[in-house]
Write a protein that binds this DNA or RNA. Structure first.
Lengths: 114, 114
DNA sequence: TCCTCAATTCAACGTTCTCTAAAATGATTA
DNA sequence: TAATCATTTTAGAGAACGTTGAATTGAGGA
């Protein structure tokens, strides 16, 4: 609500924007989703979930990281709605939330490998 | 190279992975790309670039943030190969790197708005 | 050359992140 | 119920992040 730190004395002409701008809520949600994918340890987990659900101990075994670390990473991914969580007996299984998430991650990988 | 903090005593069977895993380099590149998009201030800049190139002072004016802050955000986006940089006289113009980046951001917004 | 505008860099500061290690919770089996 | 396995939570330490404000660089015009 305070005045903004507007340090520009720019005198040259700027063209107005021709497209709709997203609301702050959408920007924040999208940023927090991207942020959740923005860590190598978490992105590796998402990749491991590409072939279906996996439980925490399995993911810990495959990555060589502690269960505590894996669990905390999964919690962040779950809060960002990127994975689902299901308890089955002693184990808790995580899986990719939907095909939309799948697509975003896949595109990210394709663009990065170029 | 040291031994891994492997705290699992898991006795139940795990199924082997049926898909190719990405190299650490690809994972790191993809994570740093996602991480660069994972901040509201930076994502807002990417959105503002959707209708074409803009210079730093223009983006500062539109967002109400300082040029220093904008410039540092753009540097991160540029390092992540999300935007291109071109000097034109006194001004430096930034633009989205390519349609691939466009798609990723668009999908991110669509999924977030749901 | 000197001055001005545009942009970048630097240093400092407070905030946020991510890990480890230990304690706590949930669920199954003896 | 007690014991055990799987997972989560908590607290704390160290690293990484993002901003502000000042100094610096780069380019153009007087």
């Amino acid at each position: 609500m305070a005045d903004q730190p507007h340090t520009t004395d720019c005198r040259h002409d700027h063209v107005a924007h021709s497209h709709e701008l997203r609301s702050e809520e959408v920007i924040d949600a999208a940023a927090s989703m991207a942020s959740a994918m923005g860590d190598p340890g978490r992105l590796r987990l998402l990749e491991l979930l590409f072939d279906g659900r996996h439980c925490v101990s399995e993911l810990a075994e495959e990555t060589g990281d502690s269960m505590s670390a894996i669990s905390q990473r999964l919690k962040i991914l779950h809060n960002a709605r990127l994975v689902t969580r299901n308890r089955d007996g002693k184990h808790v299984y995580y899986a990719l939330a939907d095909d939309h998430v799948r697509n975003i991650i896949q595109q990210l990988f394709i663009h990065s490998a170029e």
